[in-house]
Simulated scan of single mutants.
Amino acid sequence: MDTLLSDSVERLFAQISTPAAIRAIENGSSPEAMWSEIDKSGFLDALVPESLDGAGLALAQVFPMFLSAGRHAVPLPFAQTMLARAWLASAGVAPPSGPISITGMGVRSDKGAIDIDALPFGLVSAWVLADLGGQVALLPQADASSVSTHGRGGLSASLRWETWPSTGIKMPASISGNARLDEMAAASYAALMAGAADRVLAMTLDYANQRSQFGKHIGKFQAIQNQISIMAERTWAARMAAQLACQSTDWIPRPSLAALGKARSSEAAGLIADIAHAVHGAIGVTDDYDLQLYTRRLRVWRLCAGAESYWTGRIGAQLMGQPQTSALAFICGQLSMETEPREG
């Protein structure tokens, strides 16, 4: 199943999420054509139960799909929409059409107005699934004012609804069991970073084996080899951590593993981007060269749903809350893909 999914999604994203298509959307072109192809593929309901016309797959089974979205820098919330549709289905709410962003933090509600800071994919989402604290809201992006964040070409935006939108829906946070939006977002961005890191490593290896200096390829210089070896280590560490974050037998991420995966992937993202640009030299920072399409996303996704300091703090607080448990026992028991118990 994993091979079938990964091959199918790779073919789809290779066709529709090309560097030219990514640049066009970043420059303001409509993402509707790309989203239509994704929607027609049927992948968006992979986590929805079969009883509701979905595929009923587990999060671990769709991990290759998330990874592929990151590898191809898909400029739409593909992974987040899949998780949001699963959340809504479990809550008994018919998922709306269009891309859905997820946010479990950075939301403020005051006197009827709702503000969301630096929402990933905020400029290209039709809906936002947001944690209001005790309640979860499904909000239409079209009814909000938006301000682009993360600089030129960024697809994140700060959104504000002055009043409650007529098509918005409020639901108790507990209606979908123990699924938390921040953990769902963390698992998805961990996988996206792992995919983007994989692409950046491949591009860096290709460049090092093609670029010549002093009569030989720069990949033969020991200093370059040392940098690339560190980059490869961080890339595979991020991939293993992201796989842990998505290691669940249902669609809901396991809390500790989501925290671990996001922390480790975020920690690796900046270094991977730095080394890639160091090896590429001046060419790597130019707009015309594709590397920046992926390294920019590594830096943005590192912060999405909380950076490494936030999630390591969550893990540390969990350990400190168990004074009778040693650090080794905590790691083996709470951070194991096989033994972590469900909360609730």
Rank of each mutant, 00 (worst) to 15 (best):
A196F: 09
A69F: 00
E308P: 06
Q247P: 13
S166P: 11
L155E: 00
A79D: 05
T18E: 01
C246F: 07
V200S: 05
G168N: 09
A55H: 10
D143A: 08
I175R: 13
A238S: 09
C304N: 11
A190D: 00
V107H: 04
H280P: 12
T339W: 12
Q227I: 15
G321L: 08
S30G: 02
D39T: 14
W127I: 08
R234W: 05
S109E: 11
L138W: 04
P49Q: 06
G344R: 06
V128E: 04
I25L: 08
A55W: 04
V136A: 07
D115H: 10
P95W: 00
L155M: 02
D274I: 13
A55I: 15
Q324G: 15
L335G: 09
R11Q: 12
V300M: 12
A268Q: 03
C332I: 15
Q210E: 12
L192G: 01
K40V: 12
G133C: 03
G270A: 13
F43V: 11
N209R: 14
P64W: 03
A196T: 02
G177I: 07
G306N: 04
V62C: 01
A186D: 07
A84S: 05
L123K: 08
Y207S: 04
Y189R: 09
N178R: 12
P49W: 02
L83K: 04
S156V: 05
E343I: 13
P31E: 01
L155T: 01
D290A: 13
L260K: 05
W161P: 05
M337A: 14
I230Q: 14
W87A: 00
M203C: 06
D45L: 12
E162A: 14
S125H: 06
D143H: 09
A113C: 07
P77G: 08
G104S: 06
T167G: 14
N178G: 13
M320F: 12
A21C: 10
F63A: 12
A268S: 08
G28R: 00
P323S: 06
A237L: 13
L303D: 03
E10Q: 13
Y310A: 11
L12Q: 02
Q135A: 12
D206H: 11
A73I: 04
A113T: 11
R239F: 11
D288Q: 14
G104Q: 07
D7K: 15
S8C: 11
A89M: 02
S212L: 15
E50K: 13
S109Y: 07
G313W: 00
D288R: 14
S174Q: 09
Q334Y: 10
L129P: 02
G106T: 08
K262H: 04
A79W: 01
I272W: 01
Q61S: 11
L257P: 01
T295H: 07
R254G: 09
G70Q: 06
V200E: 01
R264S: 14
T167Q: 15
A179L: 10
K216N: 14
D206V: 14
S166Q: 13
F78W: 04
G104P: 06
P120N: 09
A268T: 07
